[in-house]
């Protein structure tokens, strides 16, 4: 790990000011589970590292104006253990409980997971499926950004160097819908996804009124399968429609072959996981 200057601002304001001055010389560190690994490998070599882990104002899980708001530096373990998340955003709970292992979840944060912009990041599909937005701040002001629009490519985001994600906001409209997350890895813990899938369904009677199908690790960035979603809306939530939607999801995916899995296998697994997630979402044949 190359030398750098470590800064630990004591408030968000100070943090934004420091980042505003240092711009691309600095890297934010939260849990460090991604950044420290990259700095050790010397693939990321910042001159300054600005710590946000201790900023209390970035660590919370609460319902506000009907929306579920999660502070950016909230630990994944806290999300996993939150009754509120379990009740209101089940897929996010499922995803949180499958990140790395106990140690990784105790260190890693929700925004760190998103900002690492790894195509397999487990927090992304459930948050995309729930139409979550990010509050992004800099010394110049504040903007909101859909999680879906955060990613610019593998390990790249649209954030400017002085911008900090401060909050993840899941809109109230998603909180009463059914959601489900499934992850396929080479083993059950300490493994990045070969494919991960999150779905959200809003139902009226037995008919799907709104649908989201989000896929990870099968394209340069976490993505939605619009054709699967479009197929589902207005149709009965049954096995046949789920099967067709799953096929559409597989067709939408753009997987690559790497040491974790081949593209062809990934595409097949998109189909299997999407179908299972949709069925589990409506309470049929839960499968992990």
């Amino acid at each position: 790990m190359r030398p750098f200057v470590y800064l630990s601002p004591s408030s968000l304001d100070e943090c934004l000011k420091v980042l505003g001055e240092l711009k691309d010389k600095a890297k934010i560190i939260a849990g460090g589970t991604d950044l420290v690994v990259n700095m050790r490998a010397e693939t990321v070599n910042p001159e300054y590292v600005v710590d946000i882990e201790r900023l209390r104002e970035l660590r919370f899980i609460r319902i506000d104006d009907g929306n579920l708001r999660i502070g950016a530096a909230t630990k994944i373990a806290q999300i996993e253990g939150s009754e509120l998340v379990r009740q209101k955003a089940f897929a996010l709970y499922q995803a949180a409980s499958q990140v790395g292992a106990v140690q990784t979840r105790n260190l890693g944060t929700i925004a760190g997971n998103l900002a690492s912009a790894v195509p397999s990041a487990d927090m992304a599909p459930p948050l995309i499926a729930m139409d979550a937005e990010l509050v992004v701040m800099s010394s110049g002001g504040q903007r909101s950004l859909k999680v879906e629009d955060l990613f610019a490519g593998p390990k790249a985001t649209v954030l400017k160097p002085d911008e900090v994600i401060t909050e993840v906001v899941i809109p109230g409209t998603s909180l009463n819908d059914r959601t489900w997350f499934l992850k396929l890895g080479r083993r059950k813990a300490l493994t990045l996804a070969i494919v991960n899938v999150a779905v959200r369904l809003r139902m009226a009677e037995a008919v799907v009124r709104e649908a989201r199908v989000a896929l990870g690790a099968v394209a340069p960035v976490p993505m939605r399968s619009r054709s699967a979603e479009e197929w589902l809306v207005g149709r009965p939530a049954n096995a046949e429609n789920f099967r067709i939607a799953a096929e559409k999801a597989a067709a939408d995916s753009k997987p690559i072959t790497d040491f974790r899995a081949g593209a062809e296998y990934r595409r097949k697994m998109v189909k299997v996981l999407t179908k299972r997630a949709l069925s589990a979402c409506v309470g049929e044949g839960e499968m992990a």
């Binding site: 630990s8 460090g32 589970t33 420290v36 710590d51 882990e53 106990v102 990784t104 260190l107």
Partner: peptide
């Protein structure tokens, strides 16, 4: 009280 990887924690933290 929480189990963590000491190899991933910057000392000043």
């Amino acid at each position: 009280g929480k189990a963590v990887n000491a190899c991933l924690i910057l000392a000043p933290k």
